[in-house]
Design a protein around this nucleic acid. Structure first.
Lengths: 395, 395
DNA sequence: GACGAGATTGGGAACGTTCCCAAAAGCATC
DNA sequence: GATGCTTTTGGGAACGTTCCCAATCTCGTC
């Protein structure tokens, strides 16, 4: 086969000519629709094999309006969480007959917007996105208006009516923190990273200097610790920059769960030990800040495995030990958590499954076999109890 | 703008009509080529903005023959090495104005072949691949024959004349092992994973027809695994399953470096402590096998961070400690290697840079600005000395 | 006012497919 | 042999763009 080693790849007209039929008949025989006589069908297939014919998907997409391609927009493929989710997406997409066009945004809204634009221009059949912001969502709204199927992965956007695949972040965080409380901890720290520096600077109203941004972020992060829940609001008029909207829903929800647990235990000022950094910031520094407090936390709750690593190194740097001096629970069951000593107790998310379900929901939407109402899939997390939680040190 | 919220997205004819010019003029004004009067240009741009015109890249690709899309085929996006490389690829591609179509093959040749086929059908401008096999490469050869730009990432295929981006695996491995030797070790184990189970099963001869080709490959690869160095050949006929062919070039080269170091130190039977598993196999089990030997190795060399994790857990399982009982060096500076105690000494590869260089080489090839001869980029590894290497225990 | 050079413009074709529809062929029935 | 039905076939158009080329316009010069 493929004996004719012609320069130009064979097209349907070529195959038709070789088989002695018309374009239409050849097309029907190859795509297997309409009616074709057994004889013609066979000749066409033989000709196609002989010429090494491969259908041009671009041309096909032009006509059918379908590319069989899914756009995937994530913050950071290097984060094991997203690597796992992407893996799940890739596998499920392949199984469903779709390919994956990947964009990495580094939590940067500008990049996210341009990625979405590109994906639209390339006419992907649908998009799976872990949006960098739950507030700046014009590009996502536009997507919906253009009737482009859209599934939100891991993160939610309250104002957007679309399918989502998430976990119960609030509940899982509350459960994890409750375990720390049950171990006897009263001073529990939370370290998380949320939103992009860029967006925050933009929201602050100034956008010029790149380093001023850092500075605002810092205030913001500190401010975030001030709350966001109603009761804590009335700080006075000039604290405006002290009430930053938490950018990604997961961060917000986990913080809510964190607070709820503390609240239920009758602890006040739950945000004393909360540190929210911007993406790219060193979580170790944030942790060190906590550990240097006059009354440092005796337990730490971190919202992903990379942050946990930073926290761990800050703890070591401070000459402290897990779990004797500081207990630790983190979101995400990274590969090292069960090998490192002490093994780290984690809130395990079904990362691949999250991606796979997103694909299934998206494909269902694309292929028109799903109800009008948007679907909100919430998968279970699993608390994996290991050795990083102990009672607080007795002083 | 975009006041006309029409169902069908605007096309060039729409814009032309709105601006009162012809299709051609509109196209020229938008794509900015040929000559267009300032007046016409302005009217066209105004019309485009008003209608919210977005060029259809599919149609454009049909004409230009360029999709501005790069195909990326990797074994496992969840492996931090590939996650990092993919990250580098995604970033560099975006910078160069390309998008990334991702395929995950799980080291499975069948999947790899079909991924390559799909990418060709979608007319990607070029492909970056970390091939699962350095011997079964018909699909890659076909790619070359179709003049599809191709860059090999991380792994080489000797028989294929194309650009490659790698590190000096042999040298880096030799250097690492030499360090173990210098610390006084004489029994050094190597744990690696190579090739896919599927291919091996096929190569063992049981797998139906169509694979006889594969079988010949096996003999070749086996010869290669023996070192290619004459002296070590004669092991006797029945040791065949003790000499699994390392399928991917990195595995082979690292094994070569390993043997070269032992050889230079005057040690014989360098393969006594070499364990090669198939992809998906548990590296901990392989390690345990080594540790249970009557004369177990006092140092371990692993070829990626996931294997190191497995080795580490086997060492712990055996009640041994790093580095007191067993020293460890691994390829790949995963995030946890500097946080875990003891910190693990590693051969760090410039993962993102590897991906970025692959993109640059590929884009240069695509855009025709590279010489005819294929380019072999070899990046430097860095040995990061930490705390996992100590002298062997004195008995 | 005729001429030519250069800018500007618009129509037609092309890319490779699928889809629509009308024509042709096959075949049984009256 | 004409009629009607079904199967098979092929030509034309369409998708939305870019490219080619010839036609027109502008304008300065003799």
């Amino acid at each position: 086969m493929t004996s004719h080693r012609s320069q130009r790849p064979a097209t349907i007209p070529d195959v038709a000519r070789e088989a002695g039929v018309s374009r239409s008949t050849a097309s029907r025989a190859l795509a297997d629709y309409g009616s074709v006589s057994p004889d013609a069908r066979e000749r066409v297939h033989a000709a196609a094999a002989k010429l090494g014919y491969r259908p041009n998907q671009l041309a096909r997409s032009m006509i059918t309006g379908r590319t069989h391609t899914l756009g995937v927009v994530v913050a950071d493929i290097q984060n094991p969480f997203f690597a796992g989710a992407t893996r799940g997406i890739a596998d499920a997409a392949r199984a469903a007959g779709y390919q994956v066009l990947l964009a990495n945004t580094d939590e940067d809204l500008t990049q996210e917007r341009s990625a979405v634009k590109m994906l639209r221009d390339k006419h992907v059949d649908g998009i799976i996105i872990a949006p960098a912001s739950s507030s700046s969502t014009a590009h996502l709204v536009a997507l919906r208006e253009a009737r482009c199927p859209l599934v939100l992965l891991d993160r939610e956007v309250p104002s957007l009516d679309t399918d989502t695949v998430t976990v119960d972040n609030r509940g899982a965080a509350e459960d994890a923190v409750r375990r720390l409380l049950e171990a006897g901890h009263r001073r529990i720290g939370m370290v998380t990273l949320g939103g992009s520096g860029e967006e925050r600077a933009a929201q602050e109203g100034r956008h010029g200097g790149a380093d001023r941004r850092e500075e605002t972020d810092r205030h913001r992060a500190a401010g975030r610790a001030d709350g966001g829940e109603g009761p804590q609001r009335g700080h006075g008029p000039d604290r405006r920059r002290a009430e930053p909207p938490a950018q990604v829903s997961t961060g917000v929800e986990r913080a809510e769960g964190f607070r709820a647990a503390l609240h239920a235990a009758g602890l006040k000022d739950p945000d004393t030990y909360v540190r929210v950094g911007v993406h790219g910031q060193d979580p170790a520094a944030l942790t060190t800040e906590l550990l240097r407090l006059p009354q440092p936390p005796t337990a730490l709750f971190t919202t992903d495995s990379l942050i946990a690593l930073g926290a761990l190194s800050a703890v070591q740097e401070a000459g402290l030990r897990v779990p004797d001096d500081v207990s630790l629970i983190t979101f995400d069951d990274a590969d090292w958590t069960s090998v490192i000593r002490p093994r780290v107790s984690v809130v395990a998310q079904p990362v691949q499954e999250l991606g796979a379900r997103a694909v299934r929901a998206l494909v269902a939407r694309i292929e028109g076999r799903s109800q009008a109402r948007s679907e909100h899939i919430v998968l279970d997390t699993t608390f994996v109890s290991r050795d990083s939680v102990a009672p607080p040190p007795s002083r």
